[in-house]
């Protein structure tokens, strides 16, 4: 199993590298691309402190979505629940990445499990609305279904691993810790775990090249991240 273990180890490192470097590359590109004009959507805050206060509810509560109608309320519910569950699940999974496991990670175990169960349902809302609403059906692309199905796949294999096709947690932890500490350990002997793990790698590789970059974009989109201060500050960029 060690040889195969090495292949997975290599894949994991490759995927992590693509994710980190790809993400950083995008962050740098966004940072370096100038915004020649002051274009906040108004009314907007007049100071950078105000911008932070504008962005926090956007990030934590998807505030602008709440301005919409019934369709956006459903979207908001599905999307918000999905993102929160995702976060809780990631926090719960930190127990596989750490030794000794920090206390706060342990405190997320139970809620993380619930999140894992709700997670596919939230994603189901997001996917069903794509083909039941004629506007959504028109704008949806293969990529939109792909990423939803990918994440549903990750969620379902996770549930299967937890409840139906249990694998040795000791082996899983040894494998993941091995990755984290650069001392590769063998892949656990579980097909379901292998699938779960590979799907996560696909997600990592896909992330920086896809719309998932909204995770960073929400922070830097000039319509929200700029202060409405043209009277106080002369907004300047290199090329203009």
């Amino acid at each position: 199993m060690n040889g195969l273990g090495n292949v997975f180890n290599l894949l994991a490192y490759a995927a992590a590298a693509v994710f980190i470097l790809g993400f950083l590359y995008k962050v740098i590109v966004y940072f370096k691309t100038p915004s020649p004009l002051n274009i906040p959507t108004t009314p907007g805050p007049k100071t950078s402190g105000g911008v932070v206060m504008r962005l926090i509810p956007e990030i934590l509560f998807f505030r602008s979505l709440l301005k919409g109608g019934a369709a956006e309320k459903i979207l908001w519910f599905g999307g918000w629940v999905f993102h929160v569950c995702f976060l809780l699940i990631v926090l719960r999974h930190l127990r596989y990445f750490t030794y000794p496991v920090p206390g706060f990670v342990m405190s997320f175990q139970q809620i993380g499990i619930w999140a894992g169960l709700i997670f596919p349902l939230a994603l189901l809302i997001l996917i069903v609305r794509r083909f039941t609403n004629d506007r959504l059906a028109t704008i949806s692309l293969f990529a939109d279904y792909f990423v939803l199905l990918l994440i549903i796949g990750i969620g379902l294999t996770g549930i299967l691993l937890k409840y139906f096709m249990r694998t040795s947690l000791v082996e899983v932890k040894a494998f993941i810790l091995g990755l984290v500490t650069f001392s590769p350990a063998p892949m656990p002997d579980s097909t379901m775990f292998t699938i779960h793990f590979l799907l996560v790698l696909v997600l990592l590789v896909y992330f920086p090249f896809s719309k998932l970059m909204h995770a960073w974009g929400v922070l830097v989109a000039p319509t929200r991240a700029q202060a409405d201060n043209p009277r106080e500050v002369r907004h300047m960029t290199p090329w203009a």
Binding site: Y30, I39, L65, E72, L75, M213, H214
Partner: peptide, 24 residues
């Protein structure tokens, strides 16, 4: 244009096609 305007670059990348704008 993509090199000169952050708005265009970022907006083209990050839209998730959530549809909130479709009837606005």
């Amino acid at each position: 244009v993509l090199k000169k305007y952050k708005s265009v670059k970022v907006f083209l990348d990050i839209c998730v096609r959530c549809g909130a704008c479709t009837d606005k």
